[in-house]
Design a protein around this nucleic acid. Structure first.
Length: 268
DNA sequence: ACACTAACCTGCAAGC
DNA sequence: TGCTTGCAGGTTAGTG
């Protein structure tokens, strides 16, 4: 699944083809996703114009005149522009046809994503923390909210109420670059170290966006192309292998059900 | 309010 | 060659 850089890459790939177009047809072949696709969504949005497409956290929002569609790619989802006549692949669940001939396919083997319509605000967007690349996200924010919290720092920075868009890959990478152990209690990390960490979170996300995201298994951008950031990963998926800084063996532990790889010598 | 678990679902790789 | 087990990019709902 796409983490924030993959969602951003998808947005940039599809946005120019969709904004300003009229939705001619939406076809839902499999509506059983993380939440059921909104009943009657296709009928409601057909004929409406797309005013804008934007991203908030890992959600994509297709803004229409009378409401919006909220899309999440879950762990295995992807969106791509296709040839309208392209044969349906297994796990292609939804298709949106636009007035300029563009066609968007939603593909999601595990079906952890969503595609919802609402005339008002989407409840999923309430209570989300700041965007990691915005000025609202800084060391002050991380430091203040973490006081007295016993939770390990890795699940802490992956908590969407604290900051959005930091998933398992980039949390691991940012902690390695910062020299902070992923299992250290969030409440016992200094303001100075949070300054380093917040900087690395921004840096690693920005670099991944620049390289078109990280491709693991089947991620593709809006044009069906892979990302290249996996060539830059220092620790994610490298448990047991040599640390690039000290050559020691990287250790793998579980934190909050997620595997976490780190260097016990470089990260303290 | 916080900390932690189980759950949603499919595909794939490893182990027996 | 199978069969079983565990693991995977995310997020929420439920427990104490």
């Amino acid at each position: 699944m796409p983490e924030l850089p993959e969602v951003e890459t998808t947005l940039r790939g599809i946005e120019p083809w969709i904004t300003g177009q009229i939705i001619d047809l939406i076809t839902v072949r499999q509506g059983s996703l993380r939440w059921p696709v909104t009943e009657g969504m296709a009928e409601i949005v057909q004929g409406q114009a797309v005013l804008a497409v934007r991203r908030r956290a890992k959600y994509l929002i297709i803004q229409l005149g009378h409401g919006s569609m909220l899309i999440h790619l879950g762990m295995s989802g992807s969106l791509r522009l296709t040839d309208r006549a392209l044969e349906w692949r297994k796990h292609d669940h939804i298709e949106m046809q636009l007035s300029n001939g563009s066609t968007l396919r939603y593909h999601d083997p595990r079906r952890f994503g969503c595609w919802l319509w609402s005339a008002n605000d989407h409840s999923q967007l309430a209570r989300l923390g700041p965007e990691p690349l915005s000025d609202a996200f800084d060391s002050e924010h991380l430091f203040t909210l973490s006081r007295k919290r016993k939770m390990a720092v890795k699940p802490y920075i992956m908590d969407n109420n604290i900051v959005v868009g930091v998933g398992n890959i980039y949390a691991s990478e940012a902690l390695f670059r910062s020299g902070i152990r992923p299992d250290r209690a969030a409440g016992r990390i200094s303001h100075q170290r949070y300054r380093v960490l917040s900087g690395h979170i921004k840096e690693v996300l920005a670099a991944a966006i620049e390289q078109g995201g990280t491709t693991l298994r089947d991620f593709v951008n809006g044009n069906g192309e892979p990302g290249y950031f996996q060539q830059t990963l220092d620790v994610y998926g490298r448990g047991g292998q040599a640390c690039y800084k000290c050559q020691g063996a990287l250790k793998e532990i579980k934190l909050g059900q997620r595997s976490s790889v780190f260097c016990p010598s470089c990260q303290r």
